[in-house]
Write a protein that binds this DNA or RNA. Structure first.
Lengths: 212, 212
DNA sequence: AAACTCAGTGAACGTGCGTACACTCAAATA
DNA sequence: TATTTGAGTGTACGCACGTTCACTGAGTTT
């Protein structure tokens, strides 16, 4: 066969993948301070430790890199939801545990969520469209999840969709707040969590009341 | 005296002001498609019909132009609230008339509200900070207004502030939706209005219920 | 061992940018 | 009417950019 056992690992492919990751990480880091739309191909390449022309071995253009970043960030977001689903506490107390999870995950993935918040409106139109498409898909996914919940199972589909939209909107808003939050301020963090809790409670209570 | 009556009008100062307005309008228009951070001093000057060096007669830098734009956009926003206050219908039915006014005003000032939405996160840090400062001031102003309303006058200051924050957040979100909305789609417009109404009602109902 | 593949190199190009500087010439002032 | 002011002009500069092209040399295939 092709593989010789003296080779320590698949070096060729792995090396390329490592460079690709370096480019993605560099782009994410640089766009934190300047916004993705204003960083240049040369800047990203420089930061990733390669020459500008080598960039093209991985992405055809900055647009394509932007789309790859959107995909990566939403992968983070989706894994958050998946973990939350597994957590049994969520069933007992959706609101409090959601607020907890939200703030925690966002804090540990500031770069990704910051990217979404920033580029949702400020970025290039290609990136913007991709983010909006992903967010809408996310609203629908969450709606399915919510529809399975004990108190909601007999609601209108449209109503569930709307609550889902409200939740996602609040999630984005709160994520924005966490991203803005300076490091090492647990008091602020608690305040944001409290705010998230209140808002979700507001939505749920308001909805119950309304439909009666 | 200095003024001679043969002169048709104050031409010197007025001419300068007109050029200044042309620069502001050009910047606002250009940033609609590309975002303020990516437009260049030369682009703005070209679009305004002057040579790049003449730009400096009006603004020291693009940053300063950005701040002037923030100021202008918030002037639009404030005048919206002032008009809403004068409207007596608002006292009878805050929610429905607010939704009406919001969508109408935003639709007619898409450029200004779009600028705020876009640059709040996507723009240069100077512009971002200015917008956040203005938005916070706006939340406080609205809180004062809300505090005078019949059902709210005996609430906690902090609670009123929070409701105000929720309202502003929803206002921004809805403004974003209106800005995204393609022209000539009254059906979508009605949907957004309905959404805004529901959300405000949700907040109010939720809050009433909660405090009991 | 020889041939091949392809990620990364380095020099070179045309372009648009921000800014400096010396200028013009009409409106404002004296 | 003579002088001053200052908004707008035109040239020229150095710089970073995206993209081209022929190249190198280690990893892979035969």
């Amino acid at each position: 066969m092709a593989m010789s056992d003296s080779v320590p690992a698949e070096t060729r492919q792995a090396q390329k993948e490592r460079t690709r990751q370096a480019i993605l990480a560099s782009a994410l880091e640089l766009s934190q301070t300047q916004g993705f739309a204003q960083i240049s191909l040369r800047q990203v390449s420089r930061h990733a430790g390669i020459v500008p022309t080598a960039f093209y071995r991985h992405f055809e253009s900055m647009d394509e890199l932007g789309l790859a970043l959107v995909e990566q960030c939403f992968r983070t977001l989706r894994s958050m939801i998946r973990d939350a689903q597994r957590d049994s506490k969520v069933f007992d107390n959706i609101i409090d545990s959601s607020a907890e999870i939200l703030v925690g995950v966002v804090k540990q993935n500031k770069a990704d969520f910051g990217f979404i918040a920033r580029e949702r409106f400020g970025g290039q139109s290609v990136v913007q469209q991709a983010i909006r498409r992903e967010l809408e898909a996310f609203v629908s996914e969450l709606a399915v999840l919510l529809g399975r919940l004990p108190n909601i199972e007999n609601w209108d589909t449209e109503d569930v969709q709307m609550v889902s939209r409200l939740f996602v909107r609040n999630m984005v808003s709160n994520a924005e707040e966490v991203v803005e939050m300076p490091d090492g301020r647990p008091d602020l963090e608690e305040k944001i969590k409290e705010g998230a809790r209140r808002q979700m409670r507001l939505i749920v209570i308001g909805f119950k009341e309304w439909r009666s």
